[in-house]
Write a protein that binds this DNA or RNA. Structure first.
Lengths: 214, 214
DNA sequence: TTGACAACATACCCGGTAGTATGTTCATCA
DNA sequence: TGATGAACATACTACCGGGTATGTTGTCAA
């Protein structure tokens, strides 16, 4: 049986709201964004949003989740790869930075969510929701953390403190969400050049041996 | 003539407000911080704050200014130093990171101010005020930008794009405002060890020649 | 074709917050 | 010593924004 209009439009409508919400949160931040702002961005009204999402915090959480889902989905094709940790790191980092650039509104929300932590989540239900999302984010981070830890043991990376190195690495890899903005006439090659610079910077920061930049 | 109570208390009272405001903005962000929040942090009331500052935006701007003033003041002793650019960069970067850690509430506000840009500055007066502050911030950034540009010419740094390298460098140097949090029983030596790691990471990211880490 | 329900739009409520208007206290100085 | 004004506190207003209650319209299944 073919899908009815309802089944076809529901997901796309929800997705459109998430997209608009991501843009608004990205531009103005969580607190400064009103539900009416998001509705305006959709050329619509509050009713539509509250029909699909319980509250503002819930909407934010779902944008967060969507962003993390995108990241996991982007990494998935590489998860089965067999290679040295430091080589895997290059691949993973490249995909990660690509994500930061191409889905930056969502990724910015993920960042904001981690920053806000649990400030402004009054109900236990919301706290539990955010806890779960943070764990997801944490597990994602551990993928990279493990790689650089292993890379250090094999002598490909050199840094004194794992946690600090991990922080600094993610800071570099995530940084496009703050300063990247698409230029007019920008090609995919330009973007890939940018990604390469970011990855190389993070690689060097980890004390990656020069020349092994394949 | 000795200073009267008024002269002595005015500056300290203003400074106390700035300090409390910095902490509040740091913890909750601009939009989520109410003037009453700041007043509560001071064990005081709104009246006191509005007596010293025109508006919330003005208070925020003054915290921003105070943060930038601290940065300039910290760099001042080094401005007269004569040395190769890449060596100067090390010193400057060290002081900068130290600032990010020791005055991080103010520095976080500076960051937020740059991020928000001019969103939420309705009056022309406020727009002009922020324009001025952003220029101050921009000139501060140029100090480092010039150093790494010169360092690249002398062959001590290696990166393809100056603007990108500058962004990534500041991202690393500023990063403590996001993840640093004082540990119990932490000594100055611990902090300096941290600073060294951050500076080294940024140095490597710029393609600084290894071994020249004096 | 009709009842039910999803997918919205509209209208409304109410708590919180920026900003103001108005005390109140106390140091300073003529 | 009394007048003045700085440095606040208190009381109040106006508005905005999250959330809700209530229409309205179109779809689909029986």
């Amino acid at each position: 049986m073919a899908l009815g209009i309802r089944e076809r439009t529901l997901d796309s409508s929800r997705a459109a709201i998430l997209e608009a919400a991501a843009r608004c949160f990205h531009e103005r931040g969580y607190a400064a964004t009103s539900i009416d702002d998001v509705a305006r961005a959709l050329q619509s009204t509050k009713g539509r949003i509250y029909h699909h999402f319980e509250s503002k915090a819930d909407l934010f959480a779902e944008v967060f989740r969507a962003g993390m889902d995108m990241n996991y989905a982007a990494l998935e094709p590489l998860r089965s790869m067999k290679a040295e940790a430091y080589q895997l790191w290059r691949r993973f980092a490249w995909v990660h930075v690509d994500q930061m650039i191409t889905t930056r509104a969502f990724q910015r929300v993920v960042w904001m969510g981690v920053e806000m932590h649990l400030v402004g989540a009054p109900t236990p239900h919301q706290r539990a929701l955010f806890e779960e999302l943070f764990e997801t984010r944490s597990r994602y981070g551990d993928i990279f953390r493990k790689l650089i830890a292993e890379g250090r043991e094999t002598g490909h990376f050199h840094f004194p403190n794992l946690s600090v190195a991990n922080q600094l690495m993610f800071m570099t890899l995530n940084s496009p969400i703050f300063w990247y903005s698409p230029r007019t006439g920008e090609t995919r090659a330009d973007v890939e050049d940018l990604i390469a610079q970011v990855v190389t910077c993070a690689w060097r920061g980890l004390g990656g041996t020069e020349g092994t930049t394949t």
